[in-house]
C-alpha cells in the first residue's frame, strides 16, 4: 500500500510538473517524409501528438500535418503553417536541419523542432534525441543470453544518429552478459531498402548468427528474412513495438519503441513558459520516452531468467544506476 501511495504521488508529481495542461491554445504542425501511418518512424511522432491532443482536447491543442515532404518541398509547407499562426512546427527527421535553421531565422517567434539530433539549435529551435543506447542495451542483454552460436547479427541502416547509439548500446548489453559473443555489425546504407536489409540478414544468418537485431524502417525486411527460418532457432530483437503485432512476431523476443509524448509535452510546456528553443530534449526510459515490451507468445526462448535480467537492466537504467558508455564503442 505504501508503495502504491508513493507511486501515485510520484505519478501526480510527474504529471503535474512535466505535463501541465497548456494555458492557452497551442497549434502544432508536423512535417514528415513518409506517411503518418507508416507503422514506424513518422507514425510514432504522429501518434504522440494525437495522444497529447486527446489528453488536453482539441480546443487546447490544434494539430495539422503534411506527409511525403522531401526537404525541398517542406519549406513551402512550413511557411504556410507559419502564415496560419502555428506555434510549434515539428520537422520529423534530421534531413530537415538546414530548412529548419533557415526558417527559424526568418520567423523568430515560431518554435521549430527537428530530430533526431543532439545539436543545440538557435533560440527558437528545439532538437530531440532518443538516447537509444538504453533500448539497445536491454535488447543486447537478451541477445547475449539467448545466443547459442555466440554470433549475433546487427542490421544497421547507417552509422549515425540514434541508430549509432542503439547499435553501441546493444553491443555493450551483449558484452555485459556474454563476453564471448561476437556481434557482427553491418550496414545497408539505407533507411528504407527492405530488400537489401533482407539480403544482409540472410548473409548474417549464413555466417552463423542466431539472434539478430536492427533499427529504422528497413529492419522489417531483415525481420521478414529471419521469419523465413521458421523451424530454426533464429530470433529477432526489435527496435519498434509494432513488430510485435505483425505475423512475423513469433520470431520477436522483445521490442522497444519511442514514445514521443515526452517530447511533445516538453515542447508545449517550454513554449508556454516562454522558452522557444535552444535546448536538446532527450528521450529515455526515465522520462517515459521509451516503451519496452516482451513478447509472451514467443515461447520457451524467453526464459524467466532472461526476462529477469532484462527487467533488472530496465530498472537500473530508469533509476540511473548504470551508465552506458556508448561513445567508447568504436
Amino acid at each position: 500500500m505504501k508503495r502504491f501511495v508513493f507511486a501515485l504521488v510520484a505519478l501526480c508529481l510527474i504529471v503535474g510538473v512535466v505535463a501541465a495542461a497548456p494555458k492557452t491554445k497551442v497549434k502544432i504542425a508536423l512535417i514528415v517524409e513518409s506517411t503518418v501511418d507508416d507503422k514506424g518512424w513518422c507514425q510514432a511522432m504522429h501518434d504522440a501528438i494525437t495522444a497529447v491532443q486527446k489528453k488536453y482536447g482539441s480546443a487546447l491543442v490544434e494539430y495539422s500535418y503534411s506527409e511525403k515532404m522531401k526537404p525541398v518541398d517542406a519549406g513551402s509547407a512550413a511557411r504556410q503553417y507559419v502564415a496560419k499562426g502555428f506555434d510549434i512546427i515539428i520537422c520529423h527527421g534530421a534531413q530537415y536541419k538546414n530548412l529548419v535553421l533557415e526558417m527559424a531565422e526568418e520567423f523568430p517567434k515560431t518554435t521549430f523542432a527537428f530530430g533526431t539530433s543532439g545539436e543545440i539549435g538557435p533560440k527558437n529551435v528545439f532538437t530531440y534525441m532518443p538516447e537509444s543506447e538504453e533500448t539497445g542495451y536491454v535488447n543486447g542483454i537478451i541477445a547475449g543470453l539467448v545466443t547459442k552460436s555466440n554470433i549475433i547479427g546487427l542490421v544497421g541502416p547507417v552509422d549515425g544518429g540514434d541508430a549509432a547509439r542503439y547499435n553501441r548500446g546493444f553491443i555493450l548489453g551483449v558484452r555485459a552478459v556474454n563476453p564471448k559473443a561476437n556481434v557482427q555489425v553491418a550496414y545497408t546504407g539505407s533507411f528504407g531498402d527492405f530488400v537489401k536489409a533482407a539480403e544482409l540478414a540472410h548473409t548474417q544468418i549464413k555466417a552463423g548468427a542466431d539472434v539478430l537485431t536492427g533499427s529504422a524502417q528497413q529492419a522489417l525486411g531483415a525481420l521478414r528474412a529471419v521469419a523465413e527460418y521458421k523451424d530454426k532457432n533464429i530470433w529477432w530483437l526489435g527496435q519498434d513495438t509494432a513488430q510485435l503485432t505483425i505475423p512475423e512476431s513469433y520470431k520477436v523476443i522483445a521490442a522497444a519503441s519511442y514514445a514521443y509524448e515526452a517530447v511533445v509535452e516538453q515542447l508545449i510546456d517550454k513554449r508556454q513558459a516562454g522558452v522557444l528553443g535552444g535546448e536538446v530534449l532527450p528521450l529515455n526510459f526515465a522520462n517515459g520516452g521509451f516503451i519496452y515490451k516482451f513478447n509472451d507468445k514467443v515461447g520457451p526462448v524467453l526464459t524467466a531468467d532472461i526476462r529477469k535480467a532484462a527487467e533488472k537492466a530496465l530498472a537500473d537504467i530508469t533509476a540511473n544506476k548504470i551508465t552506458i558508455p556508448w561513445k567508447d564503442v568504436k
Partner: peptide
C-alpha cells in the same frame, strides 16, 4: 521483388533498382 524476395510491399520497395 515483392513475391520472391521481400515477401512484402512497401512504398520504396524498388529502391532505385
Amino acid at each position: 521483388l515483392s513475391l520472391g524476395q521481400a515477401k512484402m510491399f512497401a512504398d520504396d520497395i524498388v529502391a532505385g533498382r
